[in-house]
């Protein structure tokens, strides 16, 4: 249980949506980070993963977080995805100040507002496709079966609802993962190297799928080291050694 540091007692978030980077109009920003620093303890050393990062991502945008290994992209993803809290600074997603939330509230927030897509798919091998899609609803009173089937249809896997991941190709698995990410109808979808384990062509189709999500009004953030992916994004955030180099098109 690493540091919950960063939450300073008594601090409230901005009354409004907070000024975006570069003075941009705040309204319409799905994600806003203000002077965020994240430090870890690794052994007996302190590692600073993010250093005074401030950025914003507009709603319904396809954003790419780009940078080499160790640049802090994963950490950034953690913070945006309400998986962790910053040591310093504030993280606002959808207007909510995440740094003020405790662990359970973070989980709740994640459940409702964030969908994840992982590099290695992270599907449960012993469950079939529709069961995998329903995984996040494990503790819900009624599993939303129709919605799940609808999502499968959307990603083109409806016929294979009873296939286990082993019987799906790489691309199909990732599509299944996307369907899973959408089961709780999140406003934000985060993808960590979604094409990293796929060949070029399959990867492109996944990107198409992710881009299509923005047409629903969802904000999609993709962490990648692949410049091809970054090219397709509307917003590109470049990180190196924990510092935001720039935010651009």
């Amino acid at each position: 249980m690493s540091d919950k540091g960063g939450r300073r007692d008594g601090e409230r978030g901005d009354a409004g949506d907070g000024a975006g980077v570069g003075g941009r109009e705040a309204a319409g920003n799905a994600i806003v980070l203000k002077q965020v620093t994240k430090a870890y303890r690794s052994g007996d050393r302190e590692v600073i993963a993010l250093r005074n990062v401030s950025l914003s991502v507009p709603e319904a945008a396809l954003a790419a977080v780009q940078g080499p290994s160790g640049s802090g992209k994963t950490t950034l993803l953690n913070l945006i995805g309400a998986m962790d809290t910053p040591t310093e600074g504030t993280v606002r997603v959808g207007g909510r100040d995440l740094s003020a939330l405790d662990d359970d509230s973070l989980s709740e927030f994640r459940r409702r507002n964030v969908g994840f897509v992982f590099q290695f798919f992270n599907l449960v091998p012993v469950l079939n496709a529709v069961e995998n899609v329903l995984l996040p609803t494990m503790f819900a009173p009624e599993p939303p079966l129709e919605r799940a089937m609808g999502l499968l249809e959307r990603v083109g896997l409806r016929d294979r609802w009873d296939h286990t991941p082993a019987r799906l190709s790489g691309g199909e698995r990732q599509r299944l993962a996307v369907a899973r990410a959408l089961i709780n109808d999140p406003a934000l979808v985060l993808a960590d190297e979604p094409t990293g384990n796929l060949d070029h062509e399959t990867g492109a189709s996944i990107l198409d799928l992710l881009e299509a999500l923005t047409h629903d009004g969802r904000t999609v953030v993709v962490v990648t080291h692949d410049p091809e992916v970054a090219k397709r994004a509307g917003t590109v955030l470049r990180l190196r050694d924990g510092v935001l180099l720039g935010q651009g098109q």
């Binding site: 503790f139 409806r158 009873d162």
Partner: peptide, 27 residues
């Protein structure tokens, strides 16, 4: 002319916590 698949039946699906642990047990 694709093969028709019948939809899943709620009862046979391993959903919820119970379904999950059942599936894990079989793992």
């Amino acid at each position: 002319g694709a093969a028709e698949s019948k939809g899943p039946e709620r009862e046979t699906l391993r959903t919820g916590a119970y379904g999950y642990i059942l599936a894990q047990a079989m793992r």
